[in-house]
């Protein structure tokens, strides 16, 4: 249990540095540190599937962000914060904090899954009959590609559409730059 508090402290410190630092590269590296802390937590919670996905996506995202930020003209953030914006964000964070206290009171204890307390949940069925009904030894694969395959189809569609949109936008930009170099 103590390891979670250490990781949580590490993640919070990294998040504060990422917000407060003036250097864009340090901010991007701190965002990467947050992700790695999260993947370590998933590993200690015995969720290796999510840990692998998290760490892999984190590395890719970090590389893409570094490539996008480095060697731009703007690598430092300058300027002061506005007073009104600070007040509004502090008020919103406080309201969310007050709501969060009530929500966390109703959650089950950390480390005890809900489906072990409520009988006849869907996840209980997956765990008991998953191997027999799909033949997949990895239950996560059985759920995302057999029981809940519609979710995966939707996710793949979202990714496909996002790539098409990004390429169309970037292609238009490239054509414009081609017609008018510099």
């Amino acid at each position: 249990m103590a390891v979670f508090y250490i990781l949580l402290l590490f993640v919070i410190i990294a998040a504060i540095i990422a917000v407060e630092t003036k250097n864009l590269l340090s901010a991007v590296i701190c965002v990467g540190a947050i992700g790695f802390g999260g993947s370590l937590m998933f590993l200690f919670l015995r969720a290796p599937d999510i840990a692998i996905t998290q760490i892999v996506v984190e590395v890719m995202g970090l590389i893409i962000l570094i490539r996008a930020t480095i060697s731009r003209d703007l690598t430092f953030i300058s300027g002061d914060r506005e007073f009104f914006g600070t007040v509004v964000s502090v008020v919103i964070v406080f309201v969310i904090f007050l709501a969060g206290i009530h929500v966390f009171d109703t959650l089950p204890d950390f480390g005890t899954a809900v489906f072990t307390q409520v009988p006849d949940t869907a996840s209980q069925t997956y765990i008991e009959e998953g191997l027999e009904r799909t033949g997949a030894a990895n239950l996560v694969a059985a759920v995302i590609l057999d029981f809940r395959a519609y979710d995966t189809l939707g996710e793949a569609t979202v990714l496909f559409t996002a790539i098409i949109g990004a390429m169309v936008i970037l292609r238009g930009k490239s054509r414009k730059l081609l017609e008018d170099p510099d």
């Binding site: 890719m60 893409i64 292609r171 490239s174 414009k176």
Partner: peptide, 20 residues
Amino acid sequence: SLFLVFFSLSICRRGKGVTF
């Protein structure tokens, strides 16, 4: 598709236009 994302971002960064 993730390689395509990386590729198109580095094309955009160069400033030179290419078509696909």
